[in-house]
Amino acid sequence: MIVGERKPVGEIWGMIKGFRKVLVFGCNTCVAVCFAGGEKEVGILASQIRMKAKQENVDMLVIEGAIERQCEHEFIAAAKDQIESADCVLSIACGAGIQFTGEDFPHKIILPGLNTTGINVVEQNGVFAERCQSCGDCVLHLTGGVCPISRCSKSILNGPCGGSHDGKCEVNPEIPCGWQLIYDRLKLQGRLEILDEVIPAKDWRPSRDGGPRKIIREDLQE
């Protein structure tokens, strides 16, 4: 899922303190699952803002709202009245959701309350770890199902590098070496010969190097 972390209250306060009516607007899909931007977190953030406003003697009305997905027109449209009624919308969806809400209501000020950090998995309760960087050209079949782009700090395609020590990365001893993970997995599967093949330089155009990406499915278009 797409995960993010709530911005610090101080930073959020700096953005919203001049507005009279603020809508804290959540998204109940990805960022709700990582406990950062769903309906529940809307309640928490709104409460914090109200407490801050009271102490700062700022007359501010904080209202709360959340929709299923801020990355789809239909859902955003359902919150039209709430969005229109507010002086600014503090969205705690991912970066895509925040922008899309803004695209649907271009005359409204939409502010970010969340830092989107990546595509992660729930390693265990409360631990969300990165697994994919959406590079646009998956190589998992060449690496035993462990992604060298997201799990290796250098994203190298033929590793490990000299910074791999006892299975850990030199960047931080708490990060497992991505290429050690790849080696271990292939060894377990008895497919180490895959590593004999050198992976050629990656074409980064399907990633961000080719500019903003768009997928068009004509069969789905109206």
């Binding site: 610090p8 209250v9 101080g10 928490i44 914090q48 407490m51 801050k52 102490q55």
Partner: peptide, 8 residues
């Protein structure tokens, strides 16, 4: 931590 963030 949450209340500390807002000065309580």
């Amino acid at each position: 931590k949450l209340i500390k963030d807002v000065g309580i």
